[in-house]
Design a protein around this nucleic acid. Structure first.
Length: 205
DNA sequence: AACACTGACAACCGCCAGGAC
DNA sequence: AGTCCTGGCGGTTGTCAGTGT
């Protein structure tokens, strides 16, 4: 027999059913988003606050778009991933109606295979600069290579326009501009980002 | 028809940052 | 200043439907 205390920590896992969804939707309608950890206590739902938040954000919220990614969305994901690496929330933030989880799944199941991107390997190969290859994601790219010398390589290759873009988007990009950029191991993918198409990708959104 | 395999997607886990106390 | 709580993130795992043998 479960004690009161053990009952309190009893948590259901796995897929959500319609009844649980209804409880969660009603709670958010009444109390709004946030304070997710209160939901199990208030509603009796046997889910963790984190699970409730995830369910709402990725599935139940009215803003989320269901169904396949369009060609435009796919193109955008590819471009943004080349610029931002595995920063799924940032990428999703630029694609209306798509969540970070959707983008991540779409990348892992469709695009990584389609593009032949190796896991945990980031290749930096814009045509205008020597190849710099590092292990890990884009965050580690700047740390994992040759420090100041590497930075010089980066800086010598950014066009003036690109640096302007950096200063204009300090809030959007990370504090360390260089480290936010990575490139898939395909020259064809890299090429468009240095020129009009690059600007279209961001400023045209 | 039954089983194995695969792909797609939903959900969980561990870690981290920021805010409240 | 230190601790706790909460929310957010990316990586990973679980589940299930579809397909092949």
């Amino acid at each position: 027999m479960a004690t009161t205390e053990s009952y309190e920590y009893e948590r259901k896992k796995g897929l959500w059913n319609a009844e649980e969804d209804t409880v969660l939707i009603n709670y958010v309608k009444k109390h709004g988003k946030g304070k997710w950890n209160r939901i199990p206590k208030v509603t009796g739902l046997k889910r963790s606050g984190k699970s409730c938040r995830l369910r709402w954000m990725n599935y139940l919220t009215p803003e989320v778009k269901r169904g396949d990614f369009s060609e435009e969305e796919e193109d955008l994901v590819i471009r943004l991933h080349n610029l931002l690496g595995n920063r799924w929330s940032l990428i999703a933030g630029r694609i209306p109606g798509r969540t970070d989880n959707q983008v991540k799944n779409f990348w892992n199941t469709h695009l990584s295979k389609k593009l032949g991107v190796q896991k945990n390997k980031v290749c930096v190969i814009p045509k205008c600069m020597p190849i710099v290859e590092t292990e890990g994601n884009c965050n580690s790219a700047s740390k994992g290579t040759s420090g100041e010398g590497n930075k010089l390589v980066y800086e010598s290759c950014w066009s003036d326009d690109l640096m302007d873009f950096s200063s204009m988007h300090e809030g959007f990009m990370a504090d360390d501009f260089e480290s936010t950029f990575s490139f898939a191991n395909s020259v064809d993918l890299c090429t468009p980002y240095f020129g009009e198409a690059f600007h279209h990708c961001f400023f045209g959104l």
